[in-house]
């Protein structure tokens, strides 16, 4: 039931409680309760994905790889948390390979990001080195494709 609900919401974020209650054949209060619970447990999070570039608002994004000295007892988590708490940071991942963390940072311009990296990120205790890749164009994010949607070419009636 929870699974079914989450799956439906993931592909149809605009459904209201009434619609969902019809799909799941449950009463509206029940559905409302389950959604509240899922939100409380941090399982269900809502967020809009906006293609800012398209309306001409230029935001700058960078993908930053970070080498970190892990801390005894807490591994990478402590430094990762410190990085994640910055508002400029959109995503933080622990990754395998040469680097340890991958951080996606958002800013108004190159300078802002450069200064964030040199002043805030690189100076954190435990951060050994960083490499910054500026993102030049976004094609797909969170499963959403930033290309024109495909048209419906079906005949209006077919058997």
């Amino acid at each position: 039931m929870e699974n079914e609900l989450l799956q439906i919401l993931e592909s149809n974020p605009n459904l209201n409680i009434k619609d969902i209650s019809k799909i799941l054949n449950r009463n509206e209060d029940e559905v409302r309760e389950i959604i509240k619970e899922l939100e409380k447990r941090n399982i269900l999070k809502r967020r809009y994905i906006i293609n800012w570039e398209k309306i001409g608002r230029d935001r700058v994004y960078a993908l930053i790889k970070v080498k970190v000295s892990p801390e005894r007892g807490r591994g990478y988590d402590k430094v990762a948390e410190r990085i994640a708490r910055f508002n400029e940071v959109r995503a933080v991942y622990l990754i395998s390979g040469e680097y340890d963390l991958e951080v996606i940072v958002e800013g108004n311009n190159l300078k802002e990001i450069a200064s964030f990296v040199s002043n805030k990120l690189a100076t954190l205790e435990g951060v050994r080195s960083t490499v910054t890749h500026f993102i030049l164009k976004k094609y797909k994010e969170n499963g959403e494709i930033f290309f024109e949607e495909e048209k419906d070419y079906r005949l209006k009636i077919s058997f």
Partner: peptide, 9 residues
Amino acid sequence: ISLGVGEPD
């Protein structure tokens, strides 16, 4: 809005 279509969307 066609609900008369016999193929997947």
